[in-house]
């Protein structure tokens, strides 16, 4: 990340550079272990969106939008929605909508519980990308809104 004029002071930028990767990693952990420990797609998606928002507040708009542009966020959100629907529709291969068609596997292991980790990933993409694009949309208007 190169220095830009925008954003906050050098202290905030240094701390952000150290922490934002850890926050993102924590979000991934929360999503992938959603079927074993507390967490899941909703919380993990919001945490990953917050990592990007943290970057945006500390470094200014351009740096964060270079990492994840608005078009990319929209693509990710659509990907999440389609993935969730297709996982649900693939259940018709075994019987009905939302049928758990993958083998359950050993309980209390990472690769278990059939479709639930896949659904968690889909929901994480949907929630994270959706909230990020909401925030970007609100932010862009707020900077250029005319004053009376």
């Amino acid at each position: 990340m190169k220095e830009t004029r925008q954003g906050m002071t050098i202290i905030v930028k240094t701390i952000t550079r150290l922490t934002v990767g850890l926050i993102f990693l924590y979000g991934i952990y929360i999503v992938l272990h959603g079927h074993l420990t507390p967490g899941g797609g909703f919380a993990g998606g919001v945490i990953m969106a917050l990592a990007f928002i943290h970057l945006m507040i500390a470094f200014g708009k351009e740096t964060a939008l270079k990492k994840l542009s608005q078009a990319k966020a929209a693509f990710l959100e659509n990907l999440g929605a389609l993935m969730f629907l297709s996982v649900a529709a693939l259940g018709f291969s075994g019987g009905y909508f939302f049928y758990n068609f993958i083998k359950k596997g050993m309980p209390f292991h990472l690769l278990s519980a059939g479709i639930i980790p896949l659904c968690n990933i889909a929901i994480c993409l949907k929630v994270g990308a959706g909230l990020f694009s909401i925030f970007v949309t609100l932010l862009i208007l707020n900077n250029t809104g005319r004053k009376k």
Partner: peptide
């Protein structure tokens, strides 16, 4: 409730967007 929390955030963002539009138009 887990689904309701996230929906609540999205609805709050929608109301804030409408409020910002009102502020931009009427001041």
């Amino acid at each position: 409730v887990l689904t309701a929390i996230v929906i609540g955030l999205a609805v709050t963002a929608l109301i804030v967007a409408i409020a910002l539009r009102i502020y931009e138009k009427y001041g």
